[in-house]
């Protein structure tokens, strides 16, 4: 099988890769770049565990071929932390006990990040819509919604 050359920026770092025609973005992230924070749950776009931000939009990395995203920028959960300091969303998830088993957390965080990047002051309903494609079987969602609300408030306060 012929290889396809792909240039992508992941969490600010540029990569030139040669990928196969079937390689999905999640495979590239986990197997090649060893960014194993992004999880594969269902593999068919139902659970949202594999959510990353591609050129500013939350997407399923299990439903995108890496060959399709030549020239794109990807942000994964590993890219949230800056200089060893957790992102306010990550801090808020810890504070609000929005994590139990943790498997859905990276995807939840990326859906939440994509929301706050576009809409810094979301309503509760908008938060629910933003994470509607992310399944969590532990928390019952309430703590996650509270964490996102609280991170939004903190980011708002910090920007003033």
């Amino acid at each position: 099988m012929s290889k396809i050359e792909v240039n992508i920026t992941v969490n600010g770092a540029k990569h030139r890769l040669e990928v196969g025609p079937k390689e999905r973005l999640i495979d590239t992230l986990r197997e090649r770049l060893h960014l194993t924070g992004t999880k594969e749950g269902c593999g068919v776009g139902e659970c949202g565990a594999c959510t990353v931000i591609l050129d500013g939009e939350a997407v399923h990395s299990c439903l995108i071929l890496t060959a399709q995203v030549d020239g794109s920028e990807v942000l994964t959960v590993e890219g949230l932390e800056v200089d060893g300091r957790l992102h306010p969303l990550q801090e808020a998830f810890i504070q609000h006990h929005a994590i139990q088993c943790g498997f859905c957390t990276p995807g939840m965080l990326m859906s939440a990040k994509a929301l706050l990047d576009k809409n810094p002051n979301p309503t509760r309903e908008e938060i629910k819509t933003a994470i509607e494609g992310n399944l969590c079987r532990c928390t019952g969602y309430e703590q996650i919604i509270e964490a996102i609300e609280s991170a939004a408030n903190e980011l708002q306060a910090a920007s003033h």
């Binding site: 776009g45 949202g48 959510t51 939009e57 939350a58 997407v59 399923h60 439903l63 995108i64 859906s111 994509a114 819509t129 933003a130 509607e132 494609g133 992310n134």
Partner: peptide, 9 residues
């Protein structure tokens, strides 16, 4: 349709 992730793609 789907979820934000699906609607974005």
């Amino acid at each position: 349709i789907g979820s934000p992730q699906i609607r974005n793609r």
